[in-house]
Design a protein around this nucleic acid. Structure first.
Lengths: 345, 345
DNA sequence: AAATAGAAAGACAGCGCTGTCATTTTGGGG
DNA sequence: CCCCAAAATGACAGCGCTGTCTTTCTATTT
C-alpha cells in the first residue's frame, strides 16, 4: 500500500491473479471479442489491482510494428526559422490524433537538399518499425522522398496543398473553395464590385484561387468583370501596382481579393497611399495567413491552411487503416480580421 | 540483386552467413570488446551483404529500455501560439543530439494546468520505456512534475534557466555572465557611463542580471554609479519611466542596459520621444530576445537563451549516463543588433 | 612441452507480449 | 438427457535481440 513494487506487473501476473490464461488477459486488454462479461470483469479488476499496463516494447516486437507515428517535414534548421509556427501547428494536430489512439509521435525533420535523405528516412522507418508516416509539404510533393517511403511498405499519407490525387492516401485543402468563401463573406457585407489580383500562373494552388473567386461570384449572383481582374506575380510590389490600376478605375471596386497575402499587403499600402481609409472605403483580403498578415494595419482578413486539422486527419487515416486509395479535403479556415468591412454605401 | 527480399535479415541470418554465433554478431554490432579483428571483418561483411540493421523493437525488449528520448514541455495549445519558436529551438537541439547517438525524439507537450498530468506523464515514460527525459521550462521548475518523473526512475535532466542546483542533472544558462558580456560589448564600444534598469525583484533570473551588470562594470574598470541604477518592474511602461529619469540626469549615460526586452523597448520609445537618435546618441540593450526585439527600430541588441544548445547538452548528458548529480552551464548568445553603437564622443 | 591466465566465441534462457491452433464450455434442439 | 455447433478459453511457439555463464582458443611462462 503506498509504496510501489519496483518491478512492474506483467501480463503473466495479471493472468495468475485473475486465474485465467495470459491469452485471455491479452484479449481483454486489446478489446478482442469472445470474452465472457464475467471473465472480463475479473481480469479488469486484477489489472486495476496490479496497476498493470502493457509494455509497448514487448507488444511492438510481437506485433512487428511500433506504436509510433512519424511526422516528416522539411528541416527548419536548413533555412531560416520563421517556419516554426507552421511546424508546431502540424505537430499539434498530429499529437491530438496520436493521443486519442494511444500512439506516440516521432518527429523527423529532414533536409531534402542533402544526399541520401531517402535512404536515411527508410532506415528510421524500418528500424523503428513505425506504424505510419505523415509527410508534410513541401516534402510531400517530392516524389523522390515519397517513393522512398513507399518502398518501406509502411502506410503513409501525404499532406498536399496542391491536391494531386494518386493511388494512395492524402489529405489536402481546397484553395478554390476557401476563396469562394471569402467572396461569400464579402458579399454578405454588401460588396458587389469585387476586384481580384491573380498570382503567379505557374503555381497551381494560386490559379485555383482564381477559379474559387469566380465560383464565389457566381453563387452570390455577382458578375465577373474583366477589367476588375488584374494580374500580379505574388510579390508585394505587384500588389501595389495592381491596386494602382484597380483604384484608378472609373467604377472602382469596393473590395479587392488577392491570391496571396504579400500582394494583399501591397494593395493595402497603395490604398493608404491614395488616402483611402480601410476598411471603410475599401476591403482587402489575402491568402495564406503569413505573419505579415497580422502585422500590417489594418490586420488582414485572410485564409490559413488548416494544418493542424490536416495533420490530425492524416494520422487518423493512418490508424483507421482502410487500405487503398483515399483522399480527403479539409476546408480552410477563414481568418476574419480588420481589413474587411461593410461596403461603403 | 536489385529486388529486396521482403523480410529483413535478422541477427540469426548474419550469424549463419558469417559462420559465427549470434552473440558474436551482437558484439560486433554493439561494439563490444573481445572480438578478433578478423572475426569482426567477417561479420561486418555479412552485415553489409545482407543489409542487416538491428530491429529496435527486439532490442528494446531485451534491453528493457527504448531508444527514445522524451522532450517534455509546456503545451502551446494551452495558451496562445507565439511560443512556437521557443519549442522548435528546443526540438532542434534535442534532435541534433539524438541523431548523433542513434536515438529518436518523442515530443510530449503537456498542460500542467490539467489534473493528472503527472500520472499521464509517468504512464508515457514507463509504457514506452523512454531512455531519458528532458524537461523544459517552465515545466522544469514545477516540482510536482519533476517528482513524477523522478518516480519513474528514468534518468532525466532539467533545463532550468533559474539555475537551481539540486542533486540531479540539470543544464542552465548564466544570466549574470551574459549581462556581464553585454557590458563588455558596450565597454568595447567606448561607453563609460552605463545605466541599468532593474527588473522585478522577485524574479530570481532577473536579479541575477544586475549582479552580472556589476561584474561587467568591475572587470572593465568602470565605476558603478548609484544614480544610474533605476528600478523597473519588467513592463514596457516602467522602461519608459526609467528612461525618463536616466536621460534627465545632468551627466546622462551613453548606454542603458535593461534587465529585459520589454523595458528596453520602453527605453527606446522614450529616448526617441526625447528626440535622441539611436544608437548614435544612446545605446540600449535588452534581455530575452522576444519577438518584439526584432520588430522595433532600431532592432534591439539583446541576449537569447541558448535553448538549442541546452537541449542538445541535456540529451547528451542523458546518454553519457554518468550517474549522479551534474549540472552544466551553457553560456547565452549575445545578439548584436542595431540598438548599440560607439559611444558618442 | 606442459601449465595457465586471459581473450574470444558460443549456448541458451529469457524479455513480455501476440498469433495460431487446440481444447473446453455453453446453450439449444432433437 | 445427449449431441453438436459456436463461443470461450487455454497452450505454446515465436518475435529478434541481449545478458549471463560456459567452453574453447591463444599466447605466454616455466
Amino acid at each position: 500500500m503506498g509504496q510501489q513494487t519496483i518491478t512492474r506487473a506483467t501480463i503473466f501476473d495479471v493472468a495468475q491473479r485473475a486465474s485465467v490464461s495470459i491469452k485471455t488477459v491479452s484479449r481483454v486488454v486489446n478489446r478482442e471479442p469472445n470474452v465472457r462479461e464475467k471473465t472480463r470483469a475479473k481480469v479488469e479488476q486484477a489489472i486495476a489491482e496490479l496497476q498493470y499496463r502493457p509494455d509497448s516494447s514487448a507488444r511492438n516486437l510481437a506485433r512487428q510494428k511500433s506504436h509510433l507515428i512519424g511526422l516528416v517535414y522539411d528541416d527548419p534548421a536548413a533555412y531560416e526559422l520563421p517556419s516554426s509556427g507552421y511546424i508546431i501547428r502540424l505537430q499539434q494536430g498530429a499529437l491530438r490524433a496520436c493521443r486519442a489512439s494511444m500512439h506516440e509521435l516521432l518527429i523527423h525533420p529532414c533536409n531534402f537538399r542533402e544526399r541520401g535523405v531517402g535512404a536515411a528516412l527508410k532506415s528510421v522507418i524500418e528500424d523503428a518499425r513505425l506504424a505510419g508516416i505523415v509527410l508534410a509539404p513541401p516534402l510531400s510533393n517530392m516524389m523522390r522522398l515519397v517513393r522512398a517511403v513507399q518502398e518501406t511498405g509502411t502506410p503513409f499519407v501525404r499532406i498536399s496543398p496542391g491536391q494531386k490525387i494518386r493511388n494512395h492516401m492524402c489529405v489536402a485543402t481546397n484553395d478554390a473553395q476557401a476563396t469562394a468563401e471569402i467572396v461569400d463573406h464579402l458579399a454578405s457585407l454588401g460588396h458587389k464590385k469585387i476586384g481580384f489580383v491573380t498570382g503567379d500562373e505557374t503555381h497551381a494552388a494560386v490559379t485555383n484561387r482564381f477559379e474559387g473567386f469566380q465560383m464565389g461570384l457566381d453563387r452570390n449572383g455577382l458578375r465577373l468583370s474583366a477589367k476588375r481582374i488584374v494580374s500580379g506575380n505574388n510579390s508585394f510590389a505587384s500588389g501595389e501596382q495592381a491596386a494602382a490600376k484597380l483604384l484608378a478605375l472609373a467604377d472602382r471596386p469596393t473590395a479587392i481579393v488577392c491570391a496571396n497575402d504579400d500582394m494583399a499587403a501591397g494593395v493595402v499600402r497603395q490604398a493608404k497611399k491614395l488616402g483611402l481609409s480601410l476598411p471603410d472605403e475599401l476591403s482587402v483580403t489575402g491568402f495564406d495567413d503569413v505573419v505579415l498578415a497580422r502585422q500590417i494595419l489594418p490586420t488582414l482578413t485572410t485564409v490559413r491552411q488548416p494544418l493542424s486539422r490536416m495533420a490530425e486527419r492524416a494520422v487518423e487515416m493512418l490508424l483507421k487503416g482502410k487500405r487503398g486509395s483515399q483522399h480527403e479535403i479539409v476546408s480552410a479556415e477563414l481568418q476574419l480580421r480588420d481589413s474587411t468591412g461593410p461596403a461603403p454605401s
